[in-house]
Design a binder for these strands. Structure first.
Lengths: 191, 191
DNA sequence: CAACTACTTGAACAAGTGTTCCACAAGTTT
DNA sequence: AAACTTGTGGAACACTTGTTCAAGTAGTTG
């Protein structure tokens, strides 16, 4: 049981595997899921055409691995903001998501839609919702669900706007949505 | 200027053109945008492979035509409900959209995402939002934008839920969202 | 009937696809 | 050093793709 000494080949293999996944995510951000092919990914990652096939049995597996990994990474970012953020902080994050991180946000919603057709992706797509609900322990579950739904809507609508909405534009909307949140938790229960 | 007599050939042509568009929409509902090829559409429509190419210069044109047409059709349905519906009616429509009309709703959101990458589709994707705002003449624009955003979010999240949310589950959320609407318009301004 | 236009359709092409195969290099163990 | 496992990567295969082409039919007009 020597946990110290790992096979150098496997170590490099895992590294390359991750590099391929990261390259795939970049391709998705740039060209969408439909732009993902063994060859486009290999080119992006700077590896031979057969490398993706070696590490992932099928193209679908590569896609799924990428989206699971992407969702995981996204979760952390989102949660911090939602759980403890003020309306302005949330609005700023949303504005960034549809502007600077536009490609990434688009990719994220391609996951949603893909999950709509592939049940095995559903848990990953739903993860941030479940976590958010768990972390926030909302006093008013109905208002909180409305809030979470509106976040998705604001992001999607921000993606198809002629000019992406900015922080100042989003702030009042976010304020409206979390209106009930802090009021209701004025006397927080410690259980 | 004989507007009466139309070329019988052109008439049939237009009919076939529309049949191809409808077949394309069915393919999107079933297999997603990525499932759309000249051949799959032709098979679905029961026409030879070259028919789609004859009527649409390129596959992209076919896709765009289909999505424009789909968005148009969707608009009418949605508007009636939003503008004059009660919370329960809206909740019922949403529940239907993620259950019975699941495929159609998925297709609609693929338009959204496609519009995110193809500016020429943005107006079509945004159409229902603009129309809804115009028709509703909301007293509280902020609350209304939150409401519209939440609709998108509820639909998308409904698509990735393990079991699609039903009418009763959605009703309180919709109620929460339109809470301010009717109160604010108690004294409607006629200008 | 002849000229013209609009539509029809099968064959074919080049390009790109996912995937397999296999000879080989490199690292690990005995 | 021999046997093994793991990773590498070029060549190739069968297949699907978007699109073109040319020969054809049918409807319209003069």
């Amino acid at each position: 049981m020597e946990l110290q000494k790992v096979d150098g080949r496997k170590a490099r293999g895992e590294k390359k595997r991750r590099a391929i996944v990261e390259a795939t995510l970049r391709v998705i951000e740039r060209d969408g899921v439909s732009g993902v092919t063994h060859r486009s990914v290999a080119r992006e990652a700077g590896v031979p055409t057969t490398a993706p096939t070696y590490y992932f049995a099928t193209l679908d597996d590569l896609l799924i691995a990428t989206l699971l990994w992407s969702a995981e990474a996204m979760c952390d970012d989102v949660l911090k903001i939602i759980a403890s953020g003020t309306a302005r902080e949330i609005a700023r994050s949303l504005a960034t998501a549809v502007d600077t991180n536009r490609g990434r946000t688009l990719a994220e919603y391609e996951l949603y839609l893909l999950a709509g057709r592939r049940p095995e992706l559903k848990p990953a797509a739903r993860r941030w919702l479940d976590l958010a609900t768990e972390v926030a322990r909302p006093a008013d579950p109905v208002a909180f669900r409305a809030f979470l739904a509106a976040i998705d809507g604001l992001l999607m609508q921000g993606l198809i706007a002629d000019v992406a909405p900015n922080e100042d534009e989003l702030e009042p909307i976010v304020s409206f949505l979390i209106r009930g949140r802090d009021e209701s938790t004025a006397a927080p229960r410690e259980e």
